[in-house]
Amino acid sequence: MQHTAIALDHVREDLSPAASVMRIRLAQLLVNESLRKKEFRVPVHLALGHEAIAASVSAVMGEKDWLCLTHRNAHYNIARATSLKAELAELRLTPEGVAGGWLGSMNMANPARGIIYSSSILGNNLSVAAGVALAESVAATGGVVFATTGDGAMEEGSLYESLEFMKSARLANVVLIENNGWSMFTRISERRCVIRTDSLADAFGIPYERLTGNDPWRYIAALSRLRNIAIEQRSPVIVEIEVSTLGDVTLPAEGRHINYHHGVAPVTFSDWPLIKQDPSDPVHVLMERLGEPTAREIAGRIHASLLDEINS
């Protein structure tokens, strides 16, 4: 996309993944500022810390591929959008929005950019993704259907049923489990037994891979390979991605640390959007890989372009 094309004379590396990650981060921080000003009536679930996987999925999607998302879809919608202004308009429920103001945040979809469906119901989007892939299969388009879920949503029976159908009908689905270890305000260990996703995939005969480290170049290579497996083997694949949802807080009264869920995150918008100094923050990973000056230069350019875009 035009808005992720960026070149710096002193850097040989393909900077598109870095630019995409930075754009998703900065755009989310702009949305966060609007949340702080109470500009939206709809609940918004930011995905700070999830930028690397969204940028990578967007990068590997083919023209006939589709995405089915969850309520936490801001990172993918921004990654695929051609206009942040239209995303913000959708959150304001105005006719200029990507869905004409019909969908708001948790169901935001953008079929023109491959986002065919988003659901606010845990697990709901998986069987819809199976249906989209079934249509692609019967019509023999060669399209692959990506579906996101999380470590909370995967507790729903819908995951089991959907994987069963995807495998039985030999559908080219890529199921992305964004595992942040939390479901709202409870950790996995506080609410359920351990689920070995690799063993679950094995039980269905579905290829499985785990991605960690928030490196978009590595993620893109892995996802390209897995997408090809889905096409060649006519099989779903499961990709579990380790993410940290940034913006966590400690409750003053209880002294208890809780994960960010939705609404305003306790971070501010600037041209240097680093939130955490460790690999849980994809911006930190860019900084480590490209060097801080280059990462800052990319951030600065995108920061300026986003402000131009929303003020145009």
Binding site: L126, V128, G131
Partner: peptide, 22 residues
């Protein structure tokens, strides 16, 4: 298609097909 016994998914699958205009 003869399907497995997955009524929840079967309802969702129909909407997925419908979204693709089929």
């Amino acid at each position: 298609i003869n399907t497995p016994n997955i009524e929840n998914a079967l309802a969702g699958i129909g909407f997925g097909v419908m979204l693709r205009g089929m």
